[in-house]
């Protein structure tokens, strides 16, 4: 008599609910107080292949050793408190629906000269152990940012991985002067704040790989929708808008 050993059928997860549905142009729901929807509605998303500058993959990782948590615990808390982990001066206008596929979020980021860059992202992917943002046209970086948590033999670690190009020649010039430093600080401080939320402390490791050194000269035209330049004009035009509004109200009174 022969006996058959049951063969475990490999199971593959279903990813259908984890991805956003393509919508073409971005749409923003209600604009939260303080947010500026100057560079998001009507824009498209830009991936790493649509940007201008060199393609960089940067991985920021922090161990959360000594705490009894699982990767889904980390991601759940990260999603729920995402904006609170950002460094001061940057605003993530978290949607009421939370971080889930298809949600478009307005963000204000600090920049040189005190200009607040108004731009946005869409959550293109989210599951229990990771979530991914893709940037709107005009954002300094064309590409995707993936936030994840994983367990290895030593414990749990949290990670931010960006795969980006400078979106246009202006941002490309700014990248070595300011952009890389800003981004390193942004994600290092975010991970430190996330770890502190769980009562963990430690260092963030950073790995930078230039995946493609060539520039996409065909994408140089992206400069026309540069969110930093547009936000600068918008910001410095505030007094003029204020005077116009006052005059209009005076005429109507």
């Amino acid at each position: 008599m022969t006996s058959k050993t049951p063969v475990e059928t490999p199971k593959v997860r279903d990813d259908a609910a984890n991805w956003a549905v393509p919508a073409g142009r971005l749409r923003v729901g209600e604009v939260p107080p303080g947010a500026v929807n100057l560079n998001v509605t009507g824009r498209r998303l830009v991936g790493p292949v649509q940007g201008f500058g060199q393609l960089w993959q940067k991985t920021y990782r922090m161990r959360l050793d000594g705490i009894a948590i699982t990767p889904p615990d980390v991601i759940r808390e990260w999603k729920a408190n995402y904006g609170a982990f950002w460094p001061k001066g940057n605003h993530f206008y978290a949607p009421q629906a939370g971080i889930q596929p298809g949600v478009v979020v307005l963000i204000n980021g600090e920049s040189l000269g005190g200009v607040e860059v108004s731009t946005g992202i869409e959550v293109i992917y989210a599951d229990d152990e990771s979530f991914t943002f893709m940037n709107a046209e005009g954002h300094p970086a064309a590409g995707i940012v993936t936030f994840s948590a994983a367990r290895d033999e030593h414990g749990v670690s949290a990670q931010v991985q960006v795969l980006i190009r400078a979106d246009d020649p202006f941002y490309d010039v700014m990248l070595p002067i300011y952009g890389h430093r800003f981004e390193d600080q942004m994600w290092t401080k975010t991970l430190v704040a996330l770890a502190a939320h769980f009562g963990a402390h430690g260092d963030v490791t950073v790995e930078r790989i230039c995946v493609d050194r060539r520039r996409n000269w065909s994408q140089a035209k992206n400069i026309w929708r540069n969110a930093a330049i547009r936000s600068g004009f918008y910001m410095f035009g505030a007094p003029i808008r204020w005077v116009r509004r006052a005059l209009k109200e005076g005429r109507e009174a």
Partner: peptide
């Protein structure tokens, strides 16, 4: 099953 990390791998190959 294709995650966003998987898409990043495909982009890397493309580059």
């Amino acid at each position: 099953f294709l995650s966003s990390t998987g898409i990043a791998l495909v982009v890397g190959i493309l580059a």
